Computed example of a mutant assay.
Amino acid sequence: MNLEKRTGTARADAEPRDFWEELRLSTQSRIGLGRAGDSLPTDRVLEFRAAHAAARDAVHLPLDTDVLSQQVEALGLGSPVRVTSRAGSRAEYLRRPDLGRLPADLAGVPRSGADLGFVLGDGLSPRALMDHGAALLGALAEELSDRYSLAPPVIATEARVALGDHIAEAMGVRTLIVLIGERPGLSVADSLGIYLTHLPRPGRTDADRNCVSNIHPPEGLGYAQAAKVVAGLVSGARKLGRSGVDLKDTSRSDTLSSGEVLTLD
Results as ranks from 00 to 15, higher is better:
59 V>R: 15
18 D>H: 05
32 G>N: 10
48 F>G: 01
77 L>W: 03
215 I>E: 04
138 G>D: 13
6 R>W: 14
190 D>C: 06
200 P>A: 08
112 S>E: 07
156 A>C: 09
93 Y>E: 04
188 V>F: 10
208 D>K: 11
62 P>M: 03
140 L>P: 02
16 P>I: 13
39 S>N: 11
100 G>W: 02
14 A>W: 12
10 A>P: 01
259 G>P: 03
263 T>W: 13
189 A>L: 07
176 L>H: 02
194 I>K: 10
105 D>R: 00
161 V>M: 04
255 T>L: 15
115 D>P: 11
175 T>K: 00
76 G>D: 04
75 L>Q: 10
66 D>R: 12
125 S>D: 06
265 D>A: 07
189 A>M: 06
178 V>W: 01
90 R>P: 02
63 L>D: 05
25 L>T: 15
191 S>E: 05
67 V>G: 03
167 I>G: 01
2 N>Y: 07
137 L>I: 04
231 A>I: 04
18 D>N: 13
70 Q>T: 07
176 L>V: 02
118 F>E: 01
105 D>S: 07
37 G>E: 07
82 R>A: 10
21 E>W: 06
181 G>R: 00
37 G>K: 06
86 R>K: 12
102 L>P: 04
121 G>E: 00
113 G>V: 08
92 E>M: 13
246 D>K: 11
66 D>G: 08
240 L>G: 06
163 L>W: 07
124 L>Y: 09
174 R>C: 09
173 V>K: 03
146 D>G: 09
54 A>W: 08
160 R>K: 05
258 S>D: 10
140 L>D: 02
112 S>N: 08
108 G>Y: 02
180 I>P: 00
179 L>W: 00
215 I>N: 05
224 A>C: 04
67 V>H: 08
204 R>K: 15
27 T>N: 12
183 R>N: 03
121 G>W: 02
27 T>S: 15
207 A>F: 13
151 A>Q: 03
64 D>E: 09
211 C>G: 04
3 L>K: 11
71 Q>I: 03
63 L>C: 07
257 S>F: 12
218 P>E: 06
22 E>D: 15
108 G>K: 01
225 Q>P: 03
69 S>G: 15
120 L>H: 02
84 T>N: 10
249 D>G: 06
78 G>R: 00
208 D>T: 08
102 L>G: 00
170 A>K: 14
217 P>M: 08
182 E>S: 11
77 L>A: 12
46 L>C: 12
196 L>H: 04
202 P>F: 14
17 R>T: 04
6 R>I: 14
158 E>I: 00
265 D>E: 11
186 L>W: 08
110 P>Q: 01
79 S>H: 12
80 P>Q: 02
161 V>E: 02
19 F>S: 11
53 A>F: 05
147 R>P: 01
220 G>W: 03
235 S>L: 09
234 V>R: 02
145 S>L: 11
140 L>I: 10
67 V>L: 11
262 L>M: 14
